[in-house]
């Protein structure tokens, strides 16, 4: 399959979602309209409680209680499907299975012959740099290795849309940078549509073509920041920082940058 036809487009229109609460239903998402073309990389960013993870769960088919329409490719969503891979903050590997067995389970529903599964697993482990760790158990892996194994397991299902729910936020800074780079390469090579949920402004600016900024109570789209910077992106270039500044502004975060400092000396009580 060539790069362009690999990704699936996503179309969300007039999506509303409530959670049942003690005092009646609580609105979580209101009027979400989102169009993601095949092979794009977008990031959903926003404060906690803005429902960004909920959007991923709905697209994944893990939760089917919503109103509005979600379309992935041509088919309507009827529960989870391997064409929509999901990665979580925790690696969620099966602890009593080896890395190899975990990855093989990811390919379970593809109906491949055992030999083909073996070959696929070997190729995927090679690709994520875990060929030497195939027979280790998850408890023997470092955080970065476990998340790589989890990526390989999800890729084993041959997804055409990847839903990434803060997959790197529990990792240390070095592993986070390394995996961001690897994810970008994977995306460029395969053309899988990527939808990332993140708290990390730099991650969003580095990886995505478009950043959807959400606000909370109820979750709505506040603004969309286009990010046309050429790749590979330079994290310390002025253009990159301009994107970050726009995101900080959209999220109403005070960066402490010179333009934000008042002309009068700061009052005493502002210093923590």
């Amino acid at each position: 399959m060539d790069r362009a036809s690999r990704g699936l487009p996503l179309l969300i229109s007039r999506l509303d979602k409530d959670y049942a609460g003690k005092a009646g239903p609580r609105p979580v998402l209101r009027g979400i309209d989102l169009e993601v073309e095949a092979g794009a990389f977008i990031t959903l960013i926003g404060p906690s409680g803005c429902g960004k993870s909920t959007i991923l769960r709905l697209v994944a088919g893990l939760d089917r209680d919503y109103s509005g329409s979600i379309r992935v490719g041509e088919a309507p969503i009827r529960g989870p499907d391997l064409s929509r891979g999901m990665l979580f903050q925790e690696h969620r590997l099966f602890p009593w299975l080896t890395v190899r067995q975990n990855v093989a389970l990811g390919a379970f529903h593809c109906g491949l012959a055992p030999a083909a599964v073996d070959a696929l697993v070997r190729e995927l482990l090679e690709r994520v740099g875990l060929a030497h760790a195939a027979d280790l158990f998850p408890s023997q892996l470092s955080g970065g290795m476990a998340q790589r194994a989890s990526i390989a397991r999800t890729l084993a299902g041959q997804p055409r849309l990847l839903l990434l729910d803060e997959p790197f936020s529990a990792l240390d800074a070095f592993n986070r940078l390394a995996l961001q780079l690897e994810l970008e390469r994977l995306w460029q090579r395969t053309g899988i549509t990527m939808i990332l949920v993140s708290h990390d402004i730099e991650e969003a600016a580095y990886l995505s073509d478009r950043i959807v900024v959400l606000e909370a109570d109820p979750g709505r789209i506040r603004t969309v920041v286009e990010n046309p910077l050429p790749r590979p992106r330079d994290r310390v270039s002025p253009a990159f920082n301009a994107i970050k500044a726009r995101l900080f502004e959209a999220l109403h975060v005070d960066t402490g940058a010179p333009f934000a400092v008042p002309t009068d000396p700061a009052p005493e009580e502002a210093i923590p």
């Binding site: 994944a60 893990l62 529960g79 989870p80 499907d81 391997l82 999901m86 979580f88 925790e90 969620r92 099966f94 389970l105 990811g106 379970f108 529903h109 299902g157």
Partner: peptide
């Protein structure tokens, strides 16, 4: 979480 993964991968 683990139970959910069995749904995500649609295991028999």
């Amino acid at each position: 979480d683990i139970v959910e993964m069995t749904r995500v991968f649609r295991l028999k």
